[in-house]
Design a protein around this nucleic acid. Structure first.
Lengths: 210, 210, 210, 210
DNA sequence: TATGAATGAGATTTCATTCAT
DNA sequence: CATGAATGAAATCTCATTCAT
């Protein structure tokens, strides 16, 4: 029974992807609440009921949409690991640019997801544990490494990472709240914030010393 | 024509406040969607229909809850104006602390409001035009003044303000997403971020020169 | 207590007229159901509650609007009585023209009143007993008189009157249902129908004989 | 694309009929406004929501009740076409009798429908375009044919048809307004009105000449 | 596994009417 | 008598979810 038939698994995964793709489209277009299961089913070209063979309920669909972003976001993890050979300056610049560009592409979906993640405690917890926390820990490790290599002043890596994440999430919020200034000139803002952090953390000096 | 009877006005305002207070309570407890008009009415100790004598609809109630926050926020405006006699360091420290402490007190309400502001385009626009933009402009003016007095390097005030607001909104987001680290030690984080910004903007040097 | 103070009575009647006038305006504009008591009060320039000092409820307002039409319609009674010196041809022509012209002026109000009279059994009964039946009886008397004077064939006056009233109400219905043909050329239709009836009832022959 | 599955179509139609039947019952009993969707659903033995799988809203249900009458009324069309072999006298007699008998059977439903058709402009337009106008045009054609065959005097067919329809609608109105005289003796009234029209239009003379 | 019709709980909103001032 | 704020019943409609086929 539980013997995993690889073919069936593949079919199942394909179907799930198909549904999630449709969900992403519809959520981005209408937001979570105004998106109906019927919308998603129609967009996916399947029947309403079929969705319930692959997901527990609407919340579960959203959950998996978010988790899917996790995988995309794990690209970021790779980046962070690869980043251990970078200077802090390079790292910061890259992270800012990467995140802001991603945001600009996905603003409508982001607008649908964030409110729901913040509102739904189950979703929020999942998001925190599966995505936010791991990534923050990655970041802390990187900054700890810098510190160990004396490339960094005495600032607490935890704090630094919070600062970085705050700027990034804050930028997202600003965009969602209607301030287009940052999005209009992503690169300038990235540079500016990179500068501030480098300087502020005294990361520019030690760097050159190397 | 519409000769304003001061007594009736007072009664009306009192009733509105009563409803908004109830709305704040209920929204904070259940979030926007799960909060029903009936909940709010019961909490306010009035009949459902009465709410519609004071607000157009549920969205309008939320709108006014947000606007009410504006008045609280206008405290911030005063602060900003009073701030013109402060050093940048003092200003930054104060703003950070003020905002984070306010946030910590109002986290549940914030959790109800933000998603809705981001989701509802009408609400979002109102929020942007009535609250966000004016406050940003105040901030820009303050930093422009610093710049004119040579207390500030060449950074664009618009950018600086975006940076500051991003950190603040980002911090809110972090809290809403479940990261208690910042909230647990608001003051340390404030200091840290103030430091980074001061340093990063070269605001510490000119200051001393004075 | 019940001593009727003529001054108060006059005031009361004036107020009632004021309300009914407003009601006519609002009913004509919105129809019975979409017209609110508030609409009527605003239009009359008084408070909602005041209406209930002069009328039992909304239905009662409508009832009196209809009764008011009765008085206008009693003009018709006068006409009918005066008509006893007319030839049948003159009478028919006059009645048709009179009714159709009145209709054309009051189409929107008619559109509001008829449905309600037909729907509300109390209103319907009142309308029948106070307006329809008396007028029909007047008509029957007139035609009976014609018959007695041998100006009319053997047709039953009751039937004739039903026929006449049917054409008139039917014309109203046609107009309410959207057929503008009759309304566009009221006079031609009046002539046509007069002709048919005169001819059909052999009213044209005896007439000339006189 | 929308390959029509005949079985599903049949089921759908059956369900629609079931709902409309219930609607007819409830509307006839309570009138449009006091009939609730719940009433109709209960009467049809289904859930409230199910109605919305088959009709857009309550108005749409009424609309289809009226349209359904159209099909019944199309019997009348057949009649009219078959009528081309009849003498005008036969035709008139038949139409009057047919309509009045139908009315007598459906008085309560008629009482519910007419007010709403007159009140709701969308419904009215549909009624006019789908039912009234086509039937009037049929009638005009028939009378034009009579005229061409010199069975009719110089009267304008359009006018004649308006006259006929007015009498019919007027009779309906009289019944709805509480005058039972006509309904009590449908046949006598039919004869009477047929006579008047025949005579009035000089339709009796040419007839005999043939 | 796929379908999609059926379900029915649930929420917003309107508005005639009342009644304290 | 006038006012108009308060009332709360009542009705439409939506949509996530189920389940028989």
């Amino acid at each position: 029974m539980t013997a995993t038939d690889p073919i069936k698994d593949a079919v199942t995964q394909a179907r799930q992807r198909q549904i999630l793709e449709a969900a992403v489209t519809v959520f981005a277009e209408k937001g979570y609440h105004r998106a109906t299961i019927r919308d998603i089913a129609r967009t996916a070209g399947i029947a309403d009921g079929t969705i319930y063979n692959y997901f527990k309920n609407k919340q579960d669909v959203m959950m998996n949409v978010v988790l899917q972003m996790a995988e995309v976001s794990s690209l970021m993890e790779d980046v962070l690991q690869a980043a251990q050979t970078m200077t802090p300056a390079q790292l910061l610049a890259m992270v800012f640019q990467n995140r802001l560009r991603t945001l600009r592409k996905n603003l409508p979906l982001t607008r649908a997801i964030f409110p729901q993640v913040v509102t739904d405690s189950e979703l929020q917890q999942m998001f925190f544990e599966e995505l936010l926390l791991p990534n923050m820990e990655k970041g802390e490790a990187v900054f700890q490494a810098y510190r160990d290599r004396h490339q960094l002043g005495g600032a607490d890596p935890k704090m630094i990472v919070r600062g970085l994440f705050s700027v990034i999430f804050g930028t997202i919020m600003m965009a969602l709240l209607g301030d287009t200034f940052i999005l209009d000139d992503t690169d300038a803002f990235s540079e500016q914030m990179t500068d501030i952090f480098l300087h502020g953390l005294n990361l520019d000096q030690p760097e050159r010393e190397q």
